[in-house]
Computed example of a mutant assay.
Amino acid sequence: MVASTIRTADNPTDDRCSLTDWQHAAQRALTALGEQWTTTAGPRPGRKLLAGCLHQGLRLAREHRLELDWLTEAGRCRAAGSGRGVGDVPPGWR
């Protein structure tokens, strides 16, 4: 909502972000979310973390037409009930 308001504001200043700027920022944010999910310490980073990263990542990908990258694997993990890799589903989560 904030980004949408800023993008559509009638502001004639020279420091206004271009569509390309927004696209690059969205890609950086999507990459950071993926790194957060894949590099979280511990054997089970948790379903909450996975769900949060997926929710934010999918929204960024949709709004900015980004490649799904890590989101595909994360979606498979969510469907399998794991917080990590599909093959790493803990026995109690199957």
Rank of each mutant, 00 (worst) to 15 (best):
L60M: 11
G83L: 04
W22G: 05
C77N: 08
G81M: 05
C53G: 03
D88A: 12
A74Y: 01
P45Q: 04
M1G: 09
R28T: 02
S4G: 04
R16T: 02
R28P: 00
D69T: 12
D14H: 07
Q23M: 08
P91F: 01
W37Y: 04
D21G: 01
R44Y: 10
G57L: 06
E63Y: 01
W70D: 07
W22P: 02
D21T: 03
L19T: 05
S18Q: 04
A79K: 15
S4Y: 04
H55W: 10
G92N: 06
G85K: 12
A25I: 00
M1T: 10
G87I: 04
V2T: 12
A41C: 02
R65Y: 09
R16V: 01
T39H: 12
T31F: 08
T40S: 12
W22A: 00
R94A: 05
G83N: 02
A79M: 14
L71T: 01
V89E: 00
P91M: 03
E63M: 11
A61T: 04
L66K: 06
R62E: 14
L33G: 05
C77A: 15
A79T: 11
Q56R: 15
G85P: 00
P45V: 00
T5W: 07
L71Y: 01
D10N: 14
L66Q: 12
H64K: 07
T40Y: 05
G34K: 01
V86L: 13
A80I: 00
H55P: 03
E67A: 15
G42A: 01
H55E: 14
N11C: 08
A9W: 07
C17E: 09
V2I: 13
G81P: 10
C17L: 15
L68H: 14
N11D: 14
A74C: 10
L30K: 05
A26Q: 02
T5G: 03
T20I: 13
L58C: 06
A25T: 04
R78V: 00
A25S: 12
R59W: 03
T39Q: 10
T8R: 14
L30S: 11
R16Y: 00
P12L: 11
G85L: 13
T5M: 12
G85Q: 15
H55I: 04
D10Y: 11
A61E: 12
T5A: 14
G81R: 11
L19H: 10
P90C: 02
A51G: 08
G42E: 00
P45S: 05
A41W: 09
R28W: 07
V86I: 14
L33S: 02
L50D: 06
C17F: 13
P43R: 13
R7D: 03
A74H: 07
M1R: 12
H24I: 09
T72E: 14
T39W: 06
R47K: 15
G92C: 02
W93S: 10
R76F: 12
K48C: 04
V2N: 07
R44V: 06
V89S: 00
G92R: 03
D10A: 15
Q23W: 08
Q36T: 14
P12G: 09
R62D: 08
G57S: 11
G34E: 01
G85V: 01
R78Y: 14
P90T: 08
L50M: 03
A61N: 06
C17S: 09
Q23P: 00
G52A: 11
R78P: 00
L33F: 09
I6H: 06
R84H: 03
A32E: 07
A9G: 02
A80C: 07
T20V: 10
C77W: 07
V2P: 05
